[in-house]
């Protein structure tokens, strides 16, 4: 009794159907999504991001930030993500066009970061302070310190204009020293600032009035 070929065929067909649906279909459809033209500025949506921000995503992935931070706003009214101001609209597949790697995350041990850039404004020093010593910004935070992405150097003559200012807490530099971000820290901060889905997309318009 040699039933292996029929067993093999059955397994092959069943695996194949799931593969077609969950691998091949996304590949052919979501994989070919293109940015849409932005009539207001003549650019595209989602906007292209800087090379520094692209490099920053590698730092984000390398340090496992996704273990605590999601990057997806779910739709209303099933969830309260939009009411909680994680974003103005649902995150859709096209939003990930700005990224090399889609990291939607599975846990919210920390805050959702889909629109971190919109919340943080332009204050890059505040982002560095947060990354260098999170508990000096929020004493209750359980985020790890990313001080290893920074150099503590002796001030030679004039202080560096890149130095992180306003640091407090046990890791604050001693007098005469300053904390300077490495290239990785600068890239990570640029990436975090680039996380901003305030623009509308045809499949996910920004709700104007509630």
């Amino acid at each position: 009794m040699n039933k292996l070929p029929s067993l093999f065929t059955g397994i092959f067909l069943i695996f194949g159907s799931a593969w077609l649906g969950l691998v091949n279909y996304p590949l052919k459809n979501l994989g070919n999504l293109q940015p849409v033209p932005d009539e207001a500025t003549g650019g595209v949506l989602p906007p292209t991001v800087s090379g520094l921000a692209v490099a920053g995503q590698k730092v984000y992935a390398a340090n496992g930030c996704v273990e605590c931070h999601s990057q997806q706003v779910r739709f209303s009214p099933l969830t309260t993500d939009i009411d909680k101001e994680l974003g103005k609209r649902q995150t859709v597949a096209r939003d990930y066009l700005r990224e090399k790697t889609a990291l939607p995350g599975t846990l919210r041990v920390g805050q959702d970061l889909s629109n971190y850039g919109a919340r943080a404004g332009e204050d890059i020093n505040a982002i560095h302070r947060h990354l260098y010593e999170p508990r000096s910004v929020n004493p209750w935070s359980n985020m790890p310190s990313y001080c290893f992405l920074y150099h503590v150097v002796k001030i030679q003559g004039q202080p560096s204009n890149e130095a992180v200012i306003g640091l407090t807490g046990p890791r604050a530099p001693k007098p005469g020293y300053e904390v300077v971000p490495t290239e990785k820290a600068k890239a990570l901060a640029a990436y975090l600032l680039s996380l901003n889905q305030s623009y509308p997309l045809p499949e996910s318009p920004v709700a104007t009035a509630k």
Binding site: L22, V23, P26, L27, L30, D95, Y96, L97, T101, A102
Partner: peptide
């Protein structure tokens, strides 16, 4: 092959990773 060695466009990655 699709996510690590030669990553496909990011919008398609999520369903593949879940699969």
């Amino acid at each position: 092959a699709l996510l690590v060695w030669n990553p496909v466009a990011a919008p398609a990655q999520t369903p593949i990773a879940l699969w």
